[in-house]
Design a binder for these strands. Structure first.
Lengths: 194, 194, 194, 194
DNA sequence: AATGAATGAGTTTTCATTCAT
DNA sequence: AATGAATGAAAACTCATTCAT
């Protein structure tokens, strides 16, 4: 049957990813069927395979894109002073994660649904992100502006603390993102003895 | 024939829960089949239903038991000074969670696989746990020994920081649990301005 | 564990049959599980096998007992006149069936759940019952008190008509069983041209 | 690979219904598995769910279609004289039911396997059919051409008598359907005192 | 690019039955 | 006589994926 001229591929593809993102975040990768995704897009299940070779790759691409954007956003900083760099990192992490709750949720929850190769790729990217914070902490320790017993541990602690915001922060709640940002900037500084 | 031999009543039940715990933690609730659990126990799938009415209840009981133990372990403290109480909370949290990585993982990851009623029950228990830390922080703020802009936010931040340990800490790794405990006790104190 | 002295076998057996009767009638043989029957009796499923070799035999015994009672009740009549005999048959059929709605229902609905041998046995008994009415009709035709084109067909028609009462008659409804009996006595007479 | 070859869309649907009809009639709804139906159709079990949302709906649709056809066939008659109408009803019932032994069997035997809503719908249709006969009988009583103590009871009795034919009549047996029709026309007339 | 029919393997759960105790 | 643990087979239904059209 005839369709409005022009290809749908450049419109359906993003819609597939958007639907998968939302559904995976809400119900979990394993609990979402290709048919559910297709229904959300307004298409039959078979059509999804024009946009992804399989369900697993769909998940992987979502996570990879997210990590790429995170790395790109975070690596712009050609950091100056450690303290300023730390504050900047805090703000960037909070803003970036607050804007992408679904992506963040998936990136943490669905790691074990990746095949080993895909898992390794995502893990490597996450490590690279952590390394950026650790570099800041190390610089601060060397410059005696931070007091930290173990920079690796402190890195993990700070990131966990920051990412935890996503479990409770909601736009329009008691606190604005700006207020939360101020509170965390202080807590992070304190935590690393700045 | 009925079964290999001998009655296994009081031995199979715990083994079912143990197998479910391990498998759910490793692969995720949705990705684990009743058959897999049964195989691990050394029994046919049907036999599991002598020990749980269904898969969902099996998950729920695991989480409920975990939260009950957490609440019991943490509520013994008839806290003295806020600072001492905070240190005690930090240690207890780290030790308790380090001993039960599977339970902790499940308690965080599988919330969305609970039915609404079961979810509400677990959420209430988690809230009660958070309230204990918040009470300590509030007492410390009143007594001017802590400096915290928002006790609720600080509560979430500290718990996220502490629970994050489970994502990387491994017994026998670079640091002992005791060393980690010291580092975190300091970082937590700092974070709340003690 | 100890039980009140004395055997339960002479009490549990009838209770098993009663429970099976009621449940088979309500939900159908195939839809009733041995566990359901056991629950109704207040016993574990395994205990049922002290009273029946299997589920199929339980059904068969229920039907056989019913047919035996029907044949016994109906064959007492060493009938006199055909018309009187016909009225007597009508009354007996209505009363007997009205008193045993569950047995009647099962005897009609569950025939196909019998194994071939059991089926043959029950069918033979049913045939014997029909033969009694046909004998009456034949006598009436010979005696010119009935006008019936085909006694076999008339037999089936009359029995169908009478048994149909069970689909709608309820004790305590608009009509008493006695009233229904009068109406059917007339209709049956008419139908066979008496 | 997808399937043997060629699209079967508009051919498989009817074949599913036909297979279900025959199997339900022969063995009973509860005793027939979706796999059996699928095997009869020559398809895997999963494919059936392209044609029915579930087994229960398959049964319901079979019964609904049957009742719709019955109502359509029977309501054409804009009856003239009660006696003529009665004869016509008798003939129509016998012919219609003789042509559809499987549908009739299911419509009577599987009522209790319908969910409550579906049951109510079918019951309402059956009631409408009965009402047509009762209207004829009432007209006949008013016009003094029938003698009937209770039109509702007579309606049930006549329909039971007629439907009973399906339990024994077989095309090619001792009597033709036409002969049976004549016999029943007489018996029905007699039964209602015409 | 999309459909719709189909597969084959899988899911959770239920079942009749057995049997050591 | 009864329990309770277990089996092995089967049930209804779902799923990711394929492919002719």
């Amino acid at each position: 049957m005839a369709r409005t001229t022009g290809s749908h591929s450049d419109i359906t593809g993003p819609r597939v990813r958007a639907a998968a993102l939302q559904l995976f975040a809400r119900h979990g990768y394993a609990a979402v069927s290709m048919r559910q995704i297709a229904r959300e897009v307004g298409v039959q299940a078979g059509a999804l395979y024009n946009y992804t070779p399989d369900k697993q790759t769909l998940l992987f691409e979502l996570m990879k894109t997210h990590m790429e954007e995170l790395l790109e956003a975070s690596s712009v900083r050609k950091s100056i002073e450690p303290l300023e760099a730390l504050d900047e990192f805090t703000q960037l992490h909070l803003n970036f994660h607050a804007e992408r709750p679904d992506e963040v949720f998936i990136a943490y929850m669905e790691l074990r649904n990746l095949g080993p190769d895909n898992f390794a790729i995502i893990e490597r990217m996450r490590r690279r992100y952590e390394d950026q914070l650790e570099a800041i902490l190390r610089a601060g320790v060397e410059g005696k502006v931070f007091q930290v017993a173990d920079t690796k541990v402190a890195t993990m602690a700070v990131i966990a603390m920051l990412t935890g915001v996503n479990t409770w922060f909601r736009e329009g709640g008691r606190l604005s993102l700006e207020e939360v940002g101020k509170i965390y900037t202080d807590m992070v500084r304190n935590a690393v003895g700045a």
